[in-house]
Amino acid sequence: MAVTINTSDAPKRKLNLYGGWRAAFPFLLPSLIGFFFFFLLPTARGIYLSLTDWNLLSNSGDFIGTENYERLADDPLFWNSVRVTLFYVVINIVAQTLLAIGIAVMMDRLTKSAFVRAVVLLPYLIPNVIVTLLFVWLLDPTFGVVSDAIAAIPIIGFESNYFTSIDGVIPTIAAVMTWRHMGYTALLIFAGLQTIPKSLYEAASLDGATEWQMMRRITVPLLRPVLALVLVITVIGSFQVFDAVQVGTGGFGGRPGGPINASRVIYLYIFENAFNFNDFGYAAAISVVLLGVLMVVTAFQLKILRADESDLA
């Protein structure tokens, strides 16, 4: 009975079934407000601010064209921050990626235990601030238990002032952040490993291939798309190091970015210009450059690693 009534209605109704803007608008409205006010507007405004001499204290500024960018080109502290950041990114990404691949392969080939996976994720859940404080203590030159242990290793053991050493501070922060992120990165890679057919390993094993050969000939090539994505995520994250530097070098009588300028990464330099020197215009200009660099780095990585193609065909 109901069927006969519905049939006449159906074609008309079908057109409106999936809505149009009238149906979509109430669902989209909150996110549109959020996106407009906290992403779109600030992005446009950030670019505008970089062309002004906006001052935080007077809360005003005039349009000065590209003056901030010209100043940037001749600012040794800016170039120092670029160097320091790149140094950090290279150490952090190389160490973190190699360790994460190792951990992921180990989890894949050795144990599927959920406990192991949960444990390796733990450091990622702890705030940077807390992780950094923990390691400032563990690596304390006089009382730190980890610094003592490192010094006690035969042959390769060494002593360092870690967070307060000019040469050591960036490698130290890179190592601490590697400790925090390697498990998370390993989980992403582990997920990618699950998509490689097990039959390939069985066949290779029957042919007498060693673990190392399987790793080089099967795992790495087939993992490339996932690895590309993971690298894009981790490299972008690595460029944005801030909390660990601010807390690790700014506490305990030190100055953030120290000793001297050895750990003044680009995020910190932007932060200082904005909030110590109240120079919003200049800080915004450096942010624009950072955004540009990140976009170029991402595009370059995706191209080099051919992220969208898999060798599994």
Binding site: F39, T43, F239, Y267, A274, A283, L290, L291, L294
Partner: peptide
Amino acid sequence: MIPPIFTLIPN
């Protein structure tokens, strides 16, 4: 893709 520090000042 937008780094948080980019929107920090305008926000």
